[in-house]
Amino acid sequence: MSTLLDRAATLPLYRAHWHGRAPRALEEAPFVTAWAWRRMVKRHAGALIRPAVLWALHPVPGDDPVWIPFAHDDVAAEARRALDVFRDAGLRPGDVVLSVAPEGPWVGNALPFLMAAADSLVPDRPPLGVQVLPLAVLTVTFRPDLTLFPFRRLPTVLVGSSVDLHAIADFARAAGAPPLRCRLLLLSGPATEPTVVRGFAETCVSLLHLPGALAPFGGRPDGPGVWLPRDKVRAELIPDAEWGRSIQDPAYVPRALPAAAAQGLSGELVATVDDEALPVIRFRTQERVRVLAADAAGVRISRIAPSPGVVNGLRSAATSMSRG
């Protein structure tokens, strides 16, 4: 971790955020909110550790999106990691994958190409061998018949957020498509009812996108939650009580627990993500999660729905910060 902090300390972006005092340990680094990140990047986007080959928008719940840079090596490394995530999640050669994306632009739209075209980026690994049919929800609202073909190809895997899947299923039904029943559901977005999930697929594996990562993080069919490998992500948790207090009092700096000390607790995920272009250090994701398990290799978390109070609090806090 000190290497990551040392690298970050060479950047004007973090030097300014840290007021010139480089932290000796991760816990000493101040948090980065989405608002602060936008401001930091706007001022210092030209000074990265490695030149960016891509700037992509990462959505933040209840807030405006943030720009995240990726270097050449990040894209190749993420394509490699994506192969592992998808295989671990249960994708098999021959799978037909219907990938439902919200309206772009956002980093999650890289997913179909990470599935389909990783060959050129990771030539030493066998391709996934799946067929991907990407659909954008808002495109389908204008052309419900776009759903007919992918539904008729009988997808074995469905990828999308819990919000968008219902919309797609409704449009497909309206267009006269056959009902969809898959072997596997790769689900991002807010947590949803297990009965709803079972309506789409036999097995559900969660996906989570974090700033600094082009590929999603995922779980396994035989276990709950999402796996965050420690060589890519250092996870911390701001417990619910601390999070709530920080929303009510923006001046209050909440205390975050290392994931190992937060097992069984729920709260806001704070992520430190290694990125060759610009490491993301102690980013307050505004994602409410529960820490299921943690060890030296990584952390397993599950995404849980934020209470309406938290959502509204975040929204008003974000608004007041952007005005202020």
Binding site: V53, L57, G104, A110, L114, L121, P134, T139
Partner: peptide
């Protein structure tokens, strides 16, 4: 919408990254 999303842009990017060309995409 109702046209295409930004997903196709990643295919452009893959070509440039594989060839290690000095590009910088802002999607």
């Amino acid at each position: 919408a109702p046209f295409v999303s930004d997903a196709a842009a990643y295919a452009l990017l893959a070509a440039h990254v594989a060839a290690r060309l000095p590009v910088e995409y802002i999607l």
